[in-house]
Structures are given as structure tokens and as C-alpha cells.
Design a binder for these strands. Structure first.
Lengths: 415, 415
DNA sequence: CGGACTTCATAAAGCCCCTTTCCTAACCCC
DNA sequence: GGGGTTAGGAAAGGGGCTTTATGAAGTCCG
């Protein structure tokens, strides 16, 4: 049972104010107070803190119609840089952001199927991180942190990748290994939670209540934003909706079970849906998920019956799976995220809405909006970078312990 | 976005301290501080409050082995009474509790199938409430509140039963109607949340993290205790797991969909499982759920193959359904509650554990314990009474608004 | 049997957080 | 350039929790 302290309120408010500033930059203290529901005084204090941190700057005044003009603050984009690392089965994707969360540089490393040893992955990551820092030309001291997303089960406090199903990793001390190559503060979590936190800060969950972020990629899962924060579960593995049984005794899943949601709506599952509909379809690119999904998206855009049918079949499965989440969690928003959702886009969304409506109860259904992720870039990178941002913000509140020198961050902020 | 205030911390702490006192009565301030993680001073303050409210009393001292002996406090059982009302499809069950949550009196009213109008139900409720108060012989002023659980969708703030599927109620202002007959403070919610809060205060969720309370009765659903509190969802309808699709195109459910969990593991679903296994089984009491489940329980105890098989089949469905909750929510505890679970007991539990293990992922599975509800009485009544207790405790913190007379409770505490 | 030691409980002071209130600053308009 | 208006900061106030100090109530032992 974790107990809340008044400090947590402060931290939450600090997050909220910064979120709001990033979302509506430039903005005034008045607007912030209205948007957050905090008093003017509190907003002013928090804005002062953020100004001290050089995360935001004063950028002039609003035009006044009688009365003192409102001072405007905006994100100090050049006040620091954040790096998000999205480690996936076949690639490592790294993006460097300014504090307004604009992408300043990106790097992508492809991993061949054989490359599964931690050292190999770490090699790719550190190369890509080095690359984005060089590209963006930011001083090393400006990098506030690096968020790393790795599939599977992670322990964020120890930085250990406890289990990564795709590479059969067990208890790899990923953060320690990475810290030998990367001298910035590091934060570890998994892609489900990364994309959820991205939606929470910058996407469809912003300012809303409970939200479910459905990730549709090669792997499938759900990030849960409940009660204004990430729901992690007792062992930080909540959201494994992709390995939930959708069809009793259905398709064999790589997790060992049968009929998992992932085997019907993951990229490979969709390929299978296509294959079952028309084994020698021209849309099918065996062994290439991306190409197949792209072909499908193009086909749907051209109203090819085959493509439309596959998307509809997929949405039917997806709708049944999402209806479970809607009924059980009663969220305000359901976000479809990750690359498969992005490419299939609106047509998928429409079909999913219909399918969910067929399976969910009226009341929870009526309370939920199902939307595509409004985040234009890789949500996992963005979310990972957000973990770094949260980390940088967290340490603000910490006071130095009595009679001791001020606390130093875990890794010195110098390349 | 609800924002937390320091007042909420106080309320949570007050709950926590009282919970602890009820659980380990008598106990000392020292033990309370250790158990809650609060400082001695805070515990002393809260204990003082509860003493002032006459909810607890000082009951002597602990033996000392050198040093001042610890003062002991215990629940003041006679300090007040709480009433829990469990309105179900076929009965109204009412229990009156003392503050230690012992049952002092109970009353049960049966409802014939035709009786579905709100006035009829209210008649039963007020009769039963009157009965328990008379039986227990408590002064009316001592009744701190009445918690009412009604199936379906409720709005607890307005006290409206928005939708009750079994009677086809729509927007019945139940609390207003009840307050014409019952002069105690009233609190409305649904059985899922009632049994969840019962587990949170007095059962398997006590002191643990995220917990899922699986209700197996005629209706089926899950109460969610996440982050130390009830998860309600955006429209207070979270937990509708019973109407989640378990078998695509499966049995027709009364909710209109096919293949809902409830149609396989609810009392009627279990009867159907039995019927499909052996249409003219001696265990089957057509039209009588209770008798059938009882017969099944007896059969399992006697190791009758037919009964064992039905329980196994049921557990297989149940396991698949619970595995979804385990994977998605990653709870620390899963509680099997309500009358079907209570009657089928250990044999069901064993089978369920095995079945869940077959469907859930290893990590979340390893983190969860699946248990039967340790609550010996009707958990819904207990939970409903707990809502009343929470309500009585809530008003402690409220200060009278400025320049006005002290706030009065909604219904005067006099019969 | 009374002082010394131990342990509990309450009171006081300090810190953190948020809000309300008051006052000055800054700008518009006439 | 004064009056009206609005912004923003400083101070005061209220609630909460913790640490520290002090008094209270025992045991133990000389």
C-alpha cells in the first residue's frame, strides 16, 4: 500500500502545468490556472520553478484591453533535449526532442533476425543515440535524459529487462549495460507504457479520465491510464491484453497459448487473416509485415474488396477484444496506436467502432470515444522521452538531505 | 481530471486507521503506526477523532515489560449501527451490523418473478430495514446509515438507478423513493462495487495492492480495487466483465450478445453446462438455481463424476475469463466471491487455478494469488454497510462552511 | 521503597502544500 | 495625467504530516 504525501500533489501539479504549457505554448498564468483548476498563486509558484529550471521562458505579453497585460510563458525549446529509444524486434528507433517535444533528429538501426544478444542491441542503441546527439548538435550537458522502451517485462527501478519474449532475454541488466556507453540519465520501461504516457501528456488522453491505449504493431497490448496516472499492476506487467484469449482453442500464439488477440489483430495475425481469405493474394508479401500492411492500406484506399474484407475481419476481432476493455474498465477514451493502426487509419477505425458497438454494453460504450492516436511520430519514442522528462522534473522537488552535499544524479550529465 | 487535495490524504488515512482497528481490535497506537506507516502523532490524532466520534473506545492497557504500557483501543461495537441492503433479482437481503461489522440482525424478503416495479421493491426494502432495526433493538439515532446495492448501473451522487437489466428499470430515483420510507442517510451503489469494498475493508484485498473481486452469482461481474481504491470508470460502470465475450458466437446472453462470460459461469450458465453434459441429470433442478448449485456442491463433495465434470467445465471457462483480468490488470489478488463461489468452494478454486494457469502469462500469473472470499456472510450486504460507514466517516472531515450553521446530513438521523 | 531506566502519549514546532486576500504594478481610456 | 481595470506577487491562513521535547506511567534493582 503506497501512501500519498502532499509532495505527490505538488509533483502531479508540476506535471500538469508543464503539460498544459507544452500543449498551449505560449500561454499565460491565468489560462494555466483556469485549465488546471489550480489557484493563481500555485500556478505562479510552479511557473517560477519551471522558469528557474530554464524549461520555460517568458516571451512577452498578451495584448491588453484595459488592465495589466498577461505575461506569456512558453516552452524553452532549447533549454534541454530528451531522447527516446524504441527498441523493437526488428529495429531500434531513436529520436531526439527539444523540450517542446519536437523531433530534432532521428536515427534508425535495423536488426537482422539473428541479432538478439544484449550486446548487439546495446551496440545499436548507443550508435543511434550518438548519432542523434551529433545530428542535432546539442551540447551533451543539455541532454536531460534518455528513455528506453524495450518489449516485455521490465523492472524500472532496477533497470532490468526481466523478460523479453522475442529474444528470450531473462533478467538482462539493460540499464547498467547501457550506462557504460551512454552517460545521460536513463529510464527504462516497455512500449505499452511508453505509448500510454505519450497519449497522457500529448495525445488523446490529455485532460481526460481513464484511457486505454491499444497498441497494434507486431506485438499487441494495451497501456492503461487510470485515475490520471499509469496503471502498472503489482508487477509492472499490466496491459498484456494481446495475450488474452479471444478465440477458445484458436490460432497458436508465440506465447504458447491459443487464440490470443495478438494472433488475430497483430501484424502477423492480419497477414494470416489475409492468407485465410485469399492465400495467393497480391497484397500478401510473405515475410514482410510492413509491406503487407502497406499494401492493405493502399488497397483499402482504392476500395479493393479483398483489402476491405480483411480490414473488416480484423476489426471484427479487434472490436470483440476492445469491447472487453470497454466493459471492464469503462474508459473515457480508447486510443488506437502504433504503426498498424496508423497505416490502416480511418477505415480500420470505422470498422472497429461498429464492431465494438456490437460487443460492448450500451452504458460503457456510450461513455467511450474510440479514436486514432493524434501523435504524428513514433509514440513509443515520444513516450520514452516523456519518461525522461518526468524524471528530470521529479528531481526538482527533491531537497538535499540535511548536512550533506546536494544529491547528484545517477549518471553525471557529461558525455 | 479530479485533483487531489491534502484533505483526501487525511480521509484515506482515517479509513486506513479504522480498518486496521476493526481488523485487529483491540490494538495500540504503536501497532497502528507500524501497520499504517504513519507517524505516531498522526495516528494519535486520528485515534482521538475516532474516540470523539465514539466509534472506538479505550479498553485498558497492554502488559508492559518495563516502560509505560500501551493504551489499547477497540471498536466501540455499540457506538452505532450500519445497515446493508442487497437487492437482487429474486430477493432483498438486509443485515444490520454493529461497528465491528458483526451482524446483529438480518431479514430476507423474497420477490416473486412478477414483482419488478420500483414501489414493490421499495416496499420489501423498507419492511426489511424496519425489521432489522426492531430485531436488533437499536435506537434509531444509532443507525449511522444504510447502504443499498442494486444491480446494474447506478449514479451514486444522485441516487438514481439508471438501468437495471433484470427489471428493465430506467432512471428510477431509487434513493429519493427510499428516503420517503427510510429516515437514515442512504448510500447507493451496485453489488460489484459493494463486494469489492467489502474485500477492501475486511477481506482478501485488505492491505494489498490491486485486487479483482470476481462475483459469481446469477449475474457475474468484477469489482476492481486499483491503487488502493475502487475503480469506477468514467460512468461508474467499470467491472462489467460478465458481459465480456468469452466464446465468439456462443450462447445467447440476456444482454443480447452471444458468448458472454456470464452465460458460462453464472448460475444459469452452470446449469446449462450441466444440462449439456447430461440433460436429465439428477443434480438438475430446473428453474431453481440455488438448489442446482447446492446439489452440485454436494455432488462434488461426494466425488460424483458428473458434478466434478461440470465444475471442471465451468472452471475452464472461468479460468479463461479470469486470465484476461490477470493479464490486463496484473492484480495482486483475485477473489472469488458471491454465493456460487461460496457454495462450490475449494473444488472450484482448485480447478480455476489450474485453468487460469493455462491461459494467463507467466509473469502476471506468478504475481497473483487466487483465493476464495474470506467473508463469511453476504459480502454485498457487508459492502453496502461499508459504504454507509465510509459515508459516516467522510462527514468527519467536513468543516462547517464559513458564516453558516454546521452542515446537516441529507436525512435527519431520527426515525 | 525510592531512584533510574524504559516506553508511551501528547504537546509544540517546523515544513510542505494549497488557497484567499491584499496591495502594487502595468496598461487602457478619456 | 488621473481613474478604471487587470495581472502578479507577497503575506497570511488553514490543513496535513513529521520530528522533537516533555510529561506520564510503568518496571527493575539497589
Amino acid at each position: 500500500m503506497k501512501r500519498g504525501t502532499s509532495r505527490d500533489i505538488r509533483t502531479a501539479n508540476r506535471y500538469e502545468v508543464l503539460r498544459q504549457i507544452i500543449a498551449a505554448s505560449p500561454t499565460s498564468r491565468q489560462e494555466l490556472a483556469a485549465a488546471t483548476g489550480l489557484s493563481l498563486a500555485t500556478v505562479a509558484t510552479l511557473v517560477g520553478e519551471l522558469l528557474d529550471l530554464r524549461m520555460i521562458t517568458e516571451v512577452g505579453f498578451e495584448d491588453s484591453a484595459g488592465g495589466r497585460p498577461r505575461g506569456l510563458v512558453a516552452v524553452n525549446a532549447s533549454g534541454g533535449a530528451l531522447i527516446g529509444v524504441d527498441i523493437a524486434e526488428t529495429y531500434v528507433h531513436v529520436e531526439l526532442f527539444d523540450l517542446a517535444l519536437n523531433v530534432l533528429a532521428r536515427a534508425e538501426e535495423h536488426m537482422r533476425p539473428g541479432e538478439s544478444r544484449p550486446e548487439q542491441v546495446i551496440g545499436h542503441v548507443s550508435a543511434a543515440v550518438g548519432s542523434v546527439v551529433a545530428q542535432a548538435g546539442v551540447e551533451a550537458a543539455r541532454v536531460l535524459g534518455v528513455g528506453v522502451s524495450v518489449p516485455g517485462q521490465v523492472d524500472r527501478s532496477t533497470g532490468i529487462a526481466e523478460y523479453a519474449p522475442n529474444w528470450d532475454w531473462h533478467d538482462v541488466p539493460l540499464l547498467d549495460l547501457l550506462s557504460e556507453h551512454i552517460a545521460y540519465p536513463l529510464y527504462l520501461d516497455n512500449p505499452l507504457r511508453a505509448s500510454a504516457v505519450a497519449e497522457l501528456w500529448f495525445g488523446a488522453a490529455r485532460g481526460h479520465g481513464d484511457t486505454v491505449v491499444v497498441n497494434l504493431g507486431t506485438g499487441v497490448g494495451a497501456g492503461l491510464v487510470l485515475g490520471g496516472g499509469l496503471h502498472r499492476g503489482v508487477s509492472n506487467s499490466a496491459g498484456e491484453w494481446g495475450h488474452t484469449t479471444l478465440v477458445l482453442d484458436g490460432r497458436l500464439c508465440r506465447c504458447g497459448n491459443h487464440g490470443c488477440v495478438e494472433t488475430y489483430v497483430g501484424a502477423l495475425g492480419i497477414m494470416q487473416n489475409l492468407r485465410e481469405l485469399s492465400p495467393r493474394s497480391a497484397l500478401l508479401h510473405p515475410g514482410d509485415q510492413t509491406a503487407t500492411i502497406d499494401a492493405l492500406a493502399a488497397g483499402v484506399a482504392a476500395r479493393e474488396p479483398e483489402a476491405v474484407k480483411v480490414v473488416r475481419d480484423t476489426a471484427r476481432y479487434l472490436g470483440a477484444g476492445i469491447a472487453v476493455l470497454v466493459n471492464v474498465l469503462n474508459p473515457e477514451v480508447v486510443v488506437l496506436s502504433s504503426w498498424v493502426a496508423a497505416r490502416l487509419g480511418e477505415p480500420l477505425l470505422e470498422e472497429v467502432r461498429e464492431a465494438v458497438a456490437r460487443h460492448a454494453l450500451k452504458r460503457p460504450l456510450a461513455a467511450s470515444r474510440i479514436v486514432l492516436s493524434p501523435i504524428p511520430t513514433d509514440p513509443v519514442c515520444l513516450g520514452a522521452a516523456t519518461f525522461a522528462l518526468e524524471g528530470a522534473l521529479q528531481s526538482v522537488g527533491q531537497r538535499s538531505t540535511k548536512r550533506t552535499s546536494p544529491a547528484r544524479s545517477r549518471t553525471a550529465p557529461s558525455a
